[in-house]
Design a protein around this nucleic acid. Structure first.
Lengths: 349, 349
DNA sequence: AACGTGACAGCAAGCGCTTTCTATGCAAGA
DNA sequence: TCTTGCATAGAAAGCGCTTGCTGTCACGTT
């Protein structure tokens, strides 16, 4: 039924071993023979059997990319960058790898299951993107899996996620969320704001915590009181930003600025403010985080912290492919850049 | 080194066959035996060898999802929906499948290579999303691949892509881009617009052509002259929308409306108009397509055609998993819904 | 009491490839 | 001329799992 290596071998009048070697190009084969084999491959329209190959060679050409939410451009952009370096089709011939992105939807179980599935497939590498979940049990389970993967020869890279002390072999490209958060709030304080609302992401994520810590550090450093009622937690989506803003306004109508967990949330915040009859930044300034492509198009354009998602993703991809040296110590911090735009200004009054 | 089925079998004092059957649950095993096996699996921390399993069973648990641009929420949303139905971890136990999304970046070669890679992995199913490329040679090559995949037992589903006559076994869930485009332009004509600019996507994509055809059909039906100079082609991104709008304005400053190939492009158009000192919709109306999440947050909110991306994706996913009957004839058309919002209004003057 | 008859469990033959080791041929060195 | 050595090609032993087929019991039947 299906064409196998043996069929090709028969047609090319060589042994299966030779065909295999031609295909893998890691053993000398006389060019006349090679040609004959290649022709046979072509004529028979032969496609290698991946599982068989992986089984025999004890490695596969799968590279897993785990993302929290594939519908979120934050992850989409990173995933695209990673995948472009994985080579998939892009890379030089022979190095063809299947870069596959797996959407955990932010669920711990799915994260673990995908990791197991990838382990089962004997993936060549795994890249985990975005913030981690701060549940000790879960973090431990993930770390254990990562260790297992590493032992099995799978390269593990974290992109935009803090290093995992329990899985020291994982290379980590971490975003400086704390520093970014701090810069952002300092910018606002510098403009004169003293009553700042903060819309944080889900409680149990490292990204959420770090950005919030940065915010608080800034408040603290400048002697601005940090009223806990001015912080609201939500999800990383627009809806959440909308609702949280209304809640913040309810709690303190005298707010002059709203700092959001990310750009998407900030957009929701803008909508809520507008629907409440408030001007941006005339009445209330708004700041986001990430600098996703649409942020510059918001009206007014969003002040935010630009994270080099593409660059970081590309680097993570290269490291995963073993094409770039990991950073010393296996850990690198990627900084964000404050982008001051129209959505922030001096406070009213 | 690594734990194998045989190790588990030894530990549980049964034959490898029994362990396999416990794991696959497709053959009666006494519950006491099953328990013993499961315990051994647990104690040894055994993880099935995917390639070996796929080789022996001649099937794999991979499901491929091809997207044109994973950084674009249009695809991200569909991919998320598809993957959620693939089950990956979400599905009922045993049906665990690895839903992997592959980013073609709109490149024909990559599309083909991914298809081959998936074929090589003996994927259980493949879902192709978004518009196809209208190059005869390429379309033929893709169709041939799809046929091969089908023959090999891989289910093939197209989501948001027109049916492929040359690959009649592929189930197609098509978006009614033509109808949507027509509705949109009719809405504008109904408001009184007569000089409409159109920013089309890349020339060689079905999506581009269909939306444009809808636009032209509307013009034609209402006796509005279709000046070819009012149509500009570009990419499906913001930048392109920005530049195309400036170009359209240059060609005809008296334009009263701009119809964009999609929401992202529309956002770029809005920016260009604003930068040109024009009000939306006071001076120029703008319309998009897709109704991505950010469109409602644009200022003014974008008039657009809502495509049920999640629903269509979910359905495609279920069909790919064989959990839902394909539509009669293997083809279904998914309609869009016109969403009239603030970015369109009666023309000035 | 002899005999089906299920319900399980095991044997063993692959699945299609990679790779080690071995054979062969031929050119060059002694 | 005979040996060495290099460049290739082939033989064959797996890789770890699935599954058709063959037992083996313990029962229920007649």
């Amino acid at each position: 039924m299906t064409v196998t290596l043996a069929d090709v071998a028969a047609r090319a009048q060589v042994s299966p071993a030779t065909v295999s070697r031609v295909l893998n190009g890691n053993y000398p084969v006389a060019s006349s023979t090679r040609e004959r084999v290649l022709r046979a491959v072509d004529e028979l329209d032969y496609v290698l059997n991946g599982p068989a190959s992986s089984l025999a060679a004890a490695t596969s050409d799968l590279v897993g990319i785990l993302v929290n939410d594939i519908a979120d451009p934050f992850f989409g952009i990173m995933a695209a960058a990673i995948q472009s370096e994985i080579g998939g089709p892009g890379g030089r011939a022979g190095g063809e790898r299947l870069g596959v992105v797996c959407n955990t939807g932010g669920s711990p179980e799915r994260e673990l299951t995908y990791l197991t599935l990838l382990q089962r497939q004997r993936a060549a590498a795994v890249v985990l993107t975005g913030g981690a979940i701060e549940d000790t049990a879960h973090a431990g389970a993930v770390a254990a899996k990562l260790r297992k993967l590493h032992e099995a020869g799978t390269r593990v890279v974290l992109c935009g996620r803090p290093p995992a002390p329990e899985a020291p072999d994982a290379i980590a490209l971490t975003f400086d969320n704390r520093g970014g958060g701090r810069q952002l709030t300092e910018h606002l304080i510098g403009l004169g704001h003293r009553r700042l609302g903060y819309i944080a992401g889900p409680e149990e994520r490292t990204t959420t915590r770090h950005r919030l810590e940065g915010h608080r550090a800034a408040l603290d450093a400048h002697g601005v009181e940090d009223d806990p009622r001015r912080t609201v937690h939500g999800r990383y989506d627009r809806r959440s930003g909308y609702e949280a803003t209304l809640e913040l306004l309810r709690r303190d109508p005298s707010l002059t600025a709203v700092v959001a967990a990310n750009d998407t949330v900030a957009l929701g915040a803008c909508a809520a403010l507008r629907d409440s009859g408030l001007r941006i930044p005339g009445d209330v300034s708004v700041a986001g985080f990430d600098d996703l492509p649409f942020s510059v198009d918001a009206v007014p354009a969003l002040t935010t912290v630009r994270l080099p998602l593409s660059e970081a993703g590309a680097r993570a991809g290269r490291i995963a492919m073993g094409r770039e040296e990991p950073p010393p110590g296996g850990i690198a911090t990627v900084r964000g850049e404050l982008m001051v735009r129209g959505s922030t200004g001096v406070p009213r009054g």
